[in-house]
Design a protein around this nucleic acid. Sequence first.
DNA 1: TGAACCATGTAAGCCGTTACATGATTCG
DNA 2: CGAATCATGTAACGGCTTACATGGTTCA
Lengths: 194, 194
Amino acid sequence: RIEQDELRGNIMARSSNTQFALLGMLSFEPQSAYDMKKEMKQSTAFFWSESDGQIYPALHKMLDAGLVQVCDQEGGRDSKIVYEITEAGRQALRDWLEIPPLKKTIRNELLLKIFFGGNTSPDVIARHLSHQSYSFKEELRILDHEILPMIEQFKDSPHYPYWVMTLEHGVDLLKAKIAWAEKAENTLKKIDKD
Amino acid sequence: RIEQDELRGNIMARSSNTQFALLGMLSFEPQSAYDMKKEMKQSTAFFWSESDGQIYPALHKMLDAGLVQVCDQEGGRDSKIVYEITEAGRQALRDWLEIPPLKKTIRNELLLKIFFGGNTSPDVIARHLSHQSYSFKEELRILDHEILPMIEQFKDSPHYPYWVMTLEHGVDLLKAKIAWAEKAENTLKKIDKD
DNA sequence: TGAACCATGTAAGCCGTTACATGATTCG
DNA sequence: CGAATCATGTAACGGCTTACATGGTTCA
C-alpha cells in the first residue's frame, strides 16, 4: 500500500484537464454541469469535449478541494445544481494556464489508412477522402455561419479575442485540410489511370 | 458472467487500431515488434504511434487469430522474433481499410488554454504560442529534410504515393498552424498595448 | 397523461502509457 | 568487462466513454 502512494506521487505526468475545462467554463459565469456540457458543445466542441462520466465526479472533487462552491439560486425550487468558481479556483485556473501545453500523442485514423492504402484499391481511399472533404466543409460552414455570428455578440468581452483565435484555428486548419484532401484525391485519380 | 460476454458482443464500438497498425507495417515486410516500433518512430510518428504495452500483447492475439505467423529466419541464432503477415491478415487489413475512419473526439490542450486565456495576462498565452510556433517549425524541418529524403528512395514502390500524401498532410497542416500562431501572436501584442 | 427533454449520477470496462523486469548482444 | 542498446514482455494504474439508473419538468 505504501508503494502505491509513492507511485502516485512520482508519476503525475498523466493528468486530466477535465477540472480545468470546467473551471474555465465557470470563469465565464456560474453554471450547472448540464449547462457546461451544453455550452461546450456549442463552443469548444471542435477542440475539446467532456463526457458525463468525467464531469460529475470531477465537480465533486473540485467541491472537496474548494475550487468551486454551490451557488444558491433565487427561486430555490430548481432541480439544477449551479456551481460558481471560488478565488482558489481562479488561482488554480491561472496556475494551469501558465503551464506550457504538453505534446500529446496524436492518432489520426484517416492518415493511418492512407499510409497503408497501397494494400487496397485507390478508389477505397479516394472515397474516404471525399467523405472527409465533405465533413470538413460542413464543419467549416458551422464555424463560419453558426459559431462566428454567435460569439460576435460578445465583441466587447475581454474573452472575445481569445475565442476568435480558437475559431480562426479551426477555420484555417479546415481550409488546409480541404485543400490537402482535394490534392490527394487528384493524385489518386492519376494512380487509377495507370 | 453471461452479461459481460453479451456486453462485449454488443459494444465493439471502441476498438483499438493497434492490430491494424501492426498488420500494415507487416504488409511492407516481415519484421520484429522492436523493428515495427522503430519504423513507426521514423515514419508514422506524426500521426500514429504505439507503446510497448500495446504492441506485444496485440501480436500475441494476432498470432492466436492467425493474422500473423512467426517467420523462421536464416541463421536462426537471433533473439528476434520476426513476424510475417498471413493471407488472413492481409484480408483483415483490406477489410479494415474499407471502413470509413470514424471521428475521434479531439482534445487540443493549447486551444483550451487559449480559449480561457482571458483569465491570465496576454503574454502568458503569447509565450505558449511562440513555443508552439517553434515546435511546429522544427517538425516541419524534420518532415522536409529527414522524412522526405528518406521516402524518396522508395519512389518506385506502389506505396510511395500514399506515403507522400501523409507527408504532405503534415507539411500543409504545419504551415497552416505556423501562420495561425503568428497571426494570433500579433493579435495578442495589440491587446497588450491597450 | 405521455413523450421529450432536463438533470444528475454510477458502474463496467476498454484504451493506452509508464514503470519495471529480464536477458542477449555489441562494442569500446 | 562494463555500458549502451537490443529485445521481449508484464503489472499497475489513470483516462475516458458508454450504458444504465433515476427522477424532475414541460407542454401538447
